[in-house]
C-alpha cells in the first residue's frame, strides 16, 4: 500500500479537510456540552438535541426551501430542548442523568414518528445542498488554507460559533459566572451571581450548539434525514468534553482528532484496495475510540490532577449546598 496516497501533500489536504468537515457536528455539540458542564450540569440529552436539530432543520429547509431558515430552526429546537433540560435539572432539580436520557428517548421517538408520519412509504425526500466557498486570501495560506477555507458556509458559521463560545467561556463575565457556578455555587451566589440563571443560560447555549450540530449534519453534509441520523455523535461528544479536560479549545481539538482517525480508517481502506478483506474492519472501526482513550490516559498520567468542575452533576439550592 502506498502511504503517500494518504499522507502525501495533496492527499493530506483532502484527508484533513474531510476530517474537520465531518467532525463539525460532534465538535459543536461537544463545545456546547463544555459550557453546560462548566456550569455544573451534566447534560446527557445531547444525542437527542442533535437529532431534533437535524429533523427540524431538515423539515424547514425542505418545506420552506431555505437552508438559512432551516439552520435557525435547528438551533431553535435545540434551545427549546436545552430549556426543557434546564427546567427539569435546574428549576426542579431532578436527577440530571435521567433527565438527559429521557430527552434522548423522547427525541428519538418523536423525530421518528414525525418523519414517518410525513414521509412514510414515500421515496426518501431530499433537499438541494449548499456548495463550498473558497475564502479569498485566507484560502492561500499554505497548509491551513485549503483545509479550512474551502468549505461550505455552514462550516464557517460553525467554526466561528465554536470559537466564539470558547471565548465566551474563557474571556467574558458570563464565562466567569459559568465557571464560578460550576466550581462553587454557594460562593458564586454569595457574590450575587444567580446560580439558577447562569445554569439556565448555559443549558440554552448548549442546546443551541447541539441543535446547530444537527443542522450542519443534515443541511451541510447529507441533504437527507434518516432515522437515528445522529448515529451516536452526542455520546462521543460527551466523552470528548472529558477528554478535553473541560477546556473548550482542547475539546474542539479532540473532536477534530476523533474526526481525523475516523476519516483516516476509511481512507486507509480505500487506498489499500484488497486489505479490507484480510484485516478485520472492526480494527479500523475501533481506531477512533482507542486513539482517544490512549491520548486521554496519557494526558491524565502526565497532567495528574482531574479538571472536573467541582459541582458537576450536583443540583443547587439556595442556603442548602454550603
Amino acid at each position: 500500500m502506498d502511504w503517500s496516497e494518504i499522507f502525501g501533500p495533496d492527499a493530506l489536504v483532502v484527508l484533513l479537510s474531510t476530517s474537520v468537515a465531518f467532525a463539525m457536528p460532534t465538535a459543536l455539540a461537544a463545545v456546547g456540552e463544555t459550557v453546560a458542564e462548566r456550569a455544573g450540569v451534566l447534560n446527557l440529552g445531547l444525542e437527542g438535541m442533535l437529532l431534533a436539530g437535524a429533523l427540524v432543520s431538515f423539515l424547514v429547509a425542505y418545506y420552506v426551501g431555505s437552508v438559512a431558515l432551516g439552520t435557525v430552526a435547528g438551533v431553535a429546537i435545540g434551545v427549546v430542548l436545552g430549556a426543557l433540560m434546564a427546567f427539569l435539572s435546574v428549576s426542579l432539580r431532578t436527577e440530571q442523568i435521567i433527565n438527559g436520557i429521557a430527552i434522548v428517548l423522547v427525541a428519538q421517538g418523536i423525530t421518528l414518528f414525525v418523519f414517518e408520519k410525513l414521509f412514510g412509504g414515500e421515496e426518501q425526500p431530499t433537499i438541494a445542498g449548499i456548495s463550498d466557498v473558497e475564502v479569498p486570501l485566507l484560502h492561500d495560506i499554505p497548509g491551513v488554507g485549503p483545509v479550512v477555507f474551502e468549505q461550505n458556509v455552514l462550516f464557517y458559521l460553525s467554526l466561528a460559533l465554536a470559537l466564539g463560545v470558547s471565548l465566551l467561556l474563557t474571556r467574558t463575565r458570563f464565562g466567569l459566572s459559568v465557571r464560578a457556578v460550576g466550581e462553587s455555587p454557594a460562593a458564586a451566589e454569595a457574590t450575587a451571581v444567580s446560580v439558577a440563571r447562569t445554569r439556565w443560560l448555559a443549558l440554552l447555549v448548549c442546546g443551541g450548539m447541539a441543535g446547530l450540530g444537527g443542522a450542519v449534519l443534515v443541511l451541510g453534509q447529507l441533504n437527507v434525514f434518516e432515522e437515528d441520523v445522529s448515529g451516536g455523535r452526542g455520546w462521543v461528544a460527551i466523552a470528548l468534553v472529558i477528554f478535553g479536560r473541560w477546556n473548550p479549545l482542547l475539546v474542539l481539538g479532540g473532536a477534530f482528532l476523533f474526526g481525523f482517525t475516523d476519516a483516516l480508517q476509511i481512507r486507509v481502506q480505500a487506498v489499500s484496495g484488497g486489505i479490507a478483506s484480510s484485516v478485520p474492519t472492526e480494527i479500523f472501526g475501533a481506531l477512533p475510540y482507542v486513539v482517544t482513550l490512549a491520548v486521554m490516559v496519557a494526558a491524565t498520567v502526565l497532567a495528574g490532577r482531574d479538571a472536573q468542575p467541582a459541582a458537576l452533576g450536583v443540583p443547587f439550592r439556595k442556603g442548602v449546598n454550603a
Partner: peptide, 14 residues
C-alpha cells in the same frame, strides 16, 4: 470499503 455501520449516512458519504 466496509464501514462497520448500517445506518450512518455521513460515514457512507465519506
Amino acid at each position: 470499503t466496509y464501514i462497520g455501520d448500517w445506518n450512518d449516512a455521513a460515514k457512507g458519504k465519506q
